[in-house]
Design a protein around this nucleic acid. Structure first.
Length: 504
DNA sequence: CGGTTTTGACCTGCGC
DNA sequence: GCGCAGGTCAAAACCG
């Protein structure tokens, strides 16, 4: 980021320098403009005609300074190019790591995945498994290297750190082009299928959609689906997520005077995806949108962006839920070295957010918080929601994308709510039922380790640094960030992109 | 006229 | 078993 901001600023400095020099060299260079400028400055009293600066400054000096400025610019450009190349390489490494990550998951949970690969699921299973790559292109080969070398990972993390320091714009662009251009319709809300494949929740609450007898729907109703809740400041009734929705019901939920609206995806007639929209009781400017299910149809680009984000978040949720398998010990409940305690049953943190789904114990929910950080936030990384803390059966993970700035908006999402230029990250989880392996525990420890660092970090530390560290520390987090970024960039109207239907 | 929204009724799960 | 609350249905109203 420094480099990207450095470049324009150095350019600006060079220009400024040049313009001032031209004022002192107006007889020979840029005669018309320079002269008039100096005259203006003289009139304004800024310049003293007898100033020794201008008498002493000759053409040689100006040219030398110009040359040095140009050389600086050239260096910055070269460095920028190098960093771009490096970033691309890191992206590739990251993708391979991510694939390996899910390969490991599959290996650790053979029963669940073999169960999900029954013949009746074959048609849709392939893209679903691919979609577990958190919004990455499903056309990529799923299986590559399987070597798990921790030193390699740490090296990649360092590369990530380095790459992140070179400019968010570059990163954003690459991530967005990679994800948003994803032609697959199955990048949407895959957490449902993932939950189906990976979770063993009791199917106590089958969905009404089973009534339709639709195969795909009934597949999804075997277990309760993971949900992704998005909190964002939004003046409009709903977020513009690029999809087309039809309202089918409205309820006044207990504890919130604001009615909750129920929407169904109408892009495809039998699409099982639903969403709930409700204003936050404490702050009506905050819109809580909860997505459930996955689309069974191609999505508009903007909808894909949102779907990627929610998918990534849900993947994180499901990953975290899998870490707390009884018997292995919940790493989330283990106190971290600095004394911070991430006990999922810690009710002291339970009510930080109002979650419309909190009353549904069968729905693991991940919350993407795009609202402004509360003043009590000592660091940008302490936004933790464990709204399920009172109900340890299923996890709820909150991911805060908070900022006091409001200009960087995921245009696919809304019309004027603050977005994320900082990424506070925290997580908790409650008891899941799967053993996804030791990697998750280590991953969780990694989360906590970084959280710990962030809490201890001095206020002098920039958000950029924190962000870079957070991203470098964890692949899942990176994927989520990538998806989020893609949603921001993907929301921009791109040539040839078919804009979604409703809620425009 | 077709699609969407509204809204009261109904169904289901859960806690007591 | 009963009551409550969340979620869904479906007819009527609304809208472009």
């Amino acid at each position: 980021m420094d480099c990207m901001s450095k470049m324009p600023s150095s350019c600006g400095e060079a220009k400024e320098e040049k313009s001032f020099e031209s004022t002192g060299n107006h007889e020979n260079q840029e005669a018309g403009q320079g002269k008039s400028r100096r005259e203006i400055l003289l009139e304004m009293g800024i310049l003293n005609q007898s100033s020794p600066q201008y008498k002493a400054s000759g053409n040689v000096k100006k040219e030398n300074e110009l040359e040095s400025a140009k050389a600086k610019m050239g260096e910055v450009k070269e460095e920028n190019e190098r960093l771009k190349m490096r970033l691309q390489q890191i992206e590739k490494d990251y993708q391979s790591l991510q694939r390996r990550f899910f390969d490991i998951i599959k290996q650790e949970t053979p029963n669940n995945f073999t169960e999900s690969s029954t013949p009746s699921h074959n048609e849709t299973e392939e893209p679903e498994l691919v979609s577990l790559c958190l919004g990455r292109s499903p056309t990529e080969p799923k299986k590559e290297e399987k070597a798990s070398n921790p030193t390699k990972i740490s090296t990649k993390d360092e590369e990530w750190k380095a790459s992140l320091s070179l400019g968010w714009d570059s990163n954003k662009f690459q991530l967005s082009t990679e994800i948003v251009s994803d032609p697959s319709p199955e990048t949407s809300l895959e957490e449902t299928k993932q939950a189906e494949a990976g979770e063993t929740w009791p199917p106590s609450k089958t969905l009404k959609t089973m009534r339709n007898g639709d195969d795909e729907v009934s597949q999804q109703t075997h277990v309760k689906r993971a949900r992704v809740s998005v909190r964002a400041r939004c003046d409009t009734p709903t977020l513009n997520d690029g999809c087309q929705w039809r309202k089918y019901g409205q309820k006044i939920a207990k504890g919130n005077p604001c009615p909750r609206a129920y929407y169904r995806c109408t892009v495809a007639p039998d699409c099982p995806v639903r969403k709930q929209v409700q204003r936050c009781a404490e702050d009506t400017s905050i819109l809580i949108t909860t997505y459930e299910g996955n689309h069974n149809h191609p999505l508009p680009v903007t909808a894909t962006a949102m779907a990627s984000t929610t998918s990534a978040a849900a993947s994180m949720l499901l990953s975290s839920s899998s870490m707390s398998k009884p018997g292995l010990g919940s790493t989330a409940a283990a106190p971290v070295p600095n004394g911070l305690h991430f006990n999922p049953l810690d009710n002291s943190r339970a009510k930080q957010f109002y979650l419309p789904n909190s009353s549904s114990p069968l729905c693991p929910t991940v919350t993407l918080d795009l609202t402004t950080s509360p003043p009590s936030s000592s660091t940008p990384f302490n936004r933790l929601s464990s709204s399920f803390a009172s109900n340890p059966r299923f996890p709820s993970t909150s991911l805060s994308f908070s900022s006091s700035q409001s200009n960087i908006l995921p245009t696919a999402w809304g019309n004027g709510y603050p977005s994320s230029n900082s990424v506070p990250y925290n997580k908790t989880h409650t008891g899941g039922s799967l053993n996804m392996g030791k990697q998750f525990q280590e991953q969780q420890l990694s989360y906590q380790s970084y959280l710990e660092k962030y809490h201890q970090a001095s206020s002098q530390e920039t958000l950029t640094d924190n962000l870079a560290k957070a991203i470098a520390s964890d692949a899942s987090f990176r994927s989520m960030i990538a998806a989020t970024i893609s949603s921001m960039v993907g929301g921009r109207p791109t040539p040839g992109s078919n804009q979604g239907g409703g809620e425009r």
